[in-house]
Structure formats: C-alpha cells, structure tokens
Simulated scan of single mutants.
Amino acid sequence: MRKKITKTALAAALLFSISCWSQEAATTNNTDKKTIKNVEAGFDGMLAVSYGTKAFGINVGGPSLKYKFTKNFKVGVGAFPSLLIMDRKAQPRLAVSPIVEYRNWMLITPYYGYNSKDRMIWTFGLGYKFI
C-alpha cells in the first residue's frame, strides 16, 4: 500500500512539473516571436562568386544576421568561408560582407582583409541561396 502511494505521488509530481515547464516554454516562445519577428539569424546555404581588382573569390554561405523588410527582400551582414584566387594562387580566407537578398539571389561585397602590399581586398559578387 505504501509503495503504491509513493509511486502515485511521484507520477503526479512528474506530470505537474512537465505541465508547468510546457506552459512556461509556450509563453516565452510566443513573446520572442513578437518582439523580433523581422530579424533573422542563421546559416545561409548559398554559393557565390565574386570578382575584384586582381582577385576572384568563390564563397559559400556562413552565419548571417538579416533584417526582413518584406517576405522576399532582406538586408544584412554575413561571414563567408571563401577560396580567394589572387596572383595565380588559391588560398582559403574568411570574408565579411554586407548582403542584399531578393528571393534566392544575393548581392555581396566580400572584404578579405589585406594583401602582402597592405592593400584592402574587396570584391563584388552574386550568389544563389539553395536552402
């Protein structure tokens, strides 16, 4: 008899704690969606090519932060793991770029840092978002 009461009390406590947790999670998720519904943060599944003065870049999607003006038009900034081809040498670099996105197409202007002659490396490119 005593074991039966203990098991029942444990089961009731477990159900009560689960219901409290689910109600708390539901209320916090609803308020978060309302306050930041126009901001997107995440990884872009995209592939892009960019060209600049004596530099060519092949860029893939990385982390980004965007503001959504409409369903199809977004503006933001992102980081792109890239393969930079310069002076007939290919080297991996991380580029940082502003992004203008319309539907699945992205205009980017990646910045790769400085070259050996202390000049900034900028390119301009077009990308397509697959995911």
Rank of each mutant, 00 (worst) to 15 (best):
K4F: 11
K4Q: 12
I5R: 06
I5W: 09
T6V: 15
K7A: 12
T8F: 10
T8A: 13
T8N: 10
A9K: 13
A12W: 01
A12G: 05
A13Y: 08
A13D: 09
L14P: 00
F16I: 08
F16D: 02
F16S: 10
S17E: 06
I18E: 01
I18S: 13
S19L: 09
S19Q: 08
C20P: 00
W21V: 11
S22H: 04
Q23N: 13
E24R: 10
A25K: 12
T27G: 01
T27A: 15
T27F: 09
T28E: 14
N30I: 11
T31A: 14
D32G: 09
K33M: 12
K34P: 00
K34G: 11
K34Y: 08
I36M: 12
N38E: 13
V39K: 03
E40T: 09
E40S: 12
E40I: 11
A41L: 14
F43N: 04
D44G: 08
D44A: 13
D44L: 13
G45L: 10
G45C: 06
G45T: 07
M46C: 11
L47H: 03
A48E: 08
A48D: 11
V49S: 11
Y51Q: 09
T53A: 07
T53M: 02
T53W: 07
T53S: 14
F56V: 12
F56E: 04
G57Q: 02
I58P: 05
I58F: 15
N59M: 12
V60S: 09
V60A: 13
G61R: 01
G61D: 06
G62P: 09
G62Y: 10
P63Y: 10
L65F: 15
L65A: 14
L65I: 15
K66S: 08
K66Y: 06
Y67G: 03
T70R: 00
T70Q: 02
K71N: 15
N72R: 07
F73Y: 06
K74F: 05
V75E: 02
G76I: 06
V77P: 01
F80H: 12
P81K: 08
S82T: 14
L83E: 05
L83G: 12
L84Y: 07
K89W: 01
K89V: 14
K89R: 09
A90H: 01
Q91V: 14
Q91P: 01
P92A: 12
P92M: 10
R93G: 02
R93C: 00
L94E: 05
L94G: 04
V96C: 03
S97F: 08
S97N: 05
S97V: 04
S97P: 04
V100A: 14
Y102D: 02
Y102Q: 01
Y102H: 03
Y102R: 00
N104K: 13
W105K: 00
L107N: 00
P110I: 06
Y111A: 04
Y112D: 04
Y112I: 07
G113A: 06
N115D: 15
S116N: 14
K117R: 10
D118G: 03
D118W: 06
D118T: 08
I121C: 03
W122D: 02
W122H: 09
T123Q: 04
F124A: 14
G125H: 04
Y128I: 07
Y128C: 02
Y128P: 04
K129W: 05
K129L: 10
I131A: 06
I131V: 10
